[in-house]
């Protein structure tokens, strides 16, 4: 669906390259997360793929079409939600969606069902200026789906949302994936990426160091150990065992037979830890 080969980009007037030869491929119906701190090149990469930045080197294809050859009809097929809400504040939610829907030639999504999807149907006649930040984010998010896009680009989609609404947004993204929508996610939130993405790419200083599925990364970079918390003499104690020799480890077998187990966790790495190990930089 999206294919990026040897992509280089330098902003006009800059000497240094912002994007330094990145490669990746996203299949149809896949959620791809581009993970990196601010300034790593996430937004620039996204801007090239959506056809805004033109003078790049390398090849970028979306649905087999070279981005250099796109026309305005390309935008009939993609949806974009930026990190900060881009809405007419003096308009109601309904007026905002109606206006943006009027810009497409294809049939657009029903506005009420979009608002319902993000829990804003009751507030559709309310001016956006009276919305909280979270409500604006949800409206901004649902607008990305107004043209029934086959690819959506989401920039920090859960930023500024409470846990309940963040859950709702993540569920919608999963549902859209099941419907065959390809999702390009830019984020520095490793929890969102971990939960949603089929693959993540670590971008740092304009270069992608690694592309892999979050579960494989966590296992590959984690410790092969299990940590057990157990109750002994009314106190909680813990012990770690090597995962590979668990089956024949007598101490482990005695422990689970003898004591009440409080928790038991394998020690896989978090995505943030993997990122730091791979790039040598923090995500924030």
């Amino acid at each position: 669906m999206i294919q990026v080969k040897n992509l280089y980009y330098t902003y006009p007037g800059n000497k240094d390259e912002t994007i330094k030869g990145i490669n990746f491929r996203i299949k149809k119906g896949e959620i791809f997360g581009l993970l990196g701190p601010n300034g790593a090149g996430k937004s620039t990469t996204q801007k090239i793929i959506i056809g805004i930045l033109k003078k790049y080197r390398g090849s970028v294809k979306v649905s087999e079409i070279d981005i250099k050859d796109i026309t305005s009809s390309f935008y009939e097929e993609i949806g974009v939600a930026f990190e900060t809400p881009n809405l007419f504040n003096k308009y109601t939610a309904e007026e905002n969606l109606l206006f943006f829907a009027s810009l497409y030639n294809k049939e657009t999504e029903d506005i009420n069902s979009l608002l319902n999807m993000v829990g804003l149907i009751k507030d559709k006649k309310t001016r956006v200026s009276e919305y909280s930040k979270g409500m604006k984010m949800r409206l901004n998010f649902c607008r990305a789906f107004i043209n029934n896009p086959s690819i959506v680009f989401l920039d920090e989609p859960t930023s500024g949302l409470d846990p309940v609404n963040a859950r709702k947004i993540k569920d919608i993204i999963q549902k859209k994936k099941e419907e065959g929508v390809t999702v390009f996610l830019s984020t520095h939130d490793m929890y969102v990426a971990d939960e949603l993405c089929d693959k993540v790419g670590f971008i740092e200083e304009g270069d992608i160091d690694l592309i892999e599925s979050p579960s494989k990364l966590k296992l590959d970079y984690g410790l092969k150990k299990v940590k057990i918390e157990y109750e002994k003499n009314k106190k909680v104690e813990f012990i770690e065992f090597d995962l590979n020799s668990l089956k024949n480890n007598e101490k482990f077998i005695n422990l689970i037979n003898q004591y009440k187990i409080v928790t038991m966790h394998t020690e896989e790495a978090t995505l943030e830890e993997v990122f730091i190990k791979v790039t040598g930089r923090n995500l924030y």
């Binding site: 009939e76 930026f82 810009l103």
Partner: peptide
């Protein structure tokens, strides 16, 4: 610009 709507317009079919 204050509403940041200009940038959103140019990721639609608008020229």
């Amino acid at each position: 610009k204050g509403d940041k709507v200009i940038e959103q317009l140019f990721v639609t079919p608008i020229k």
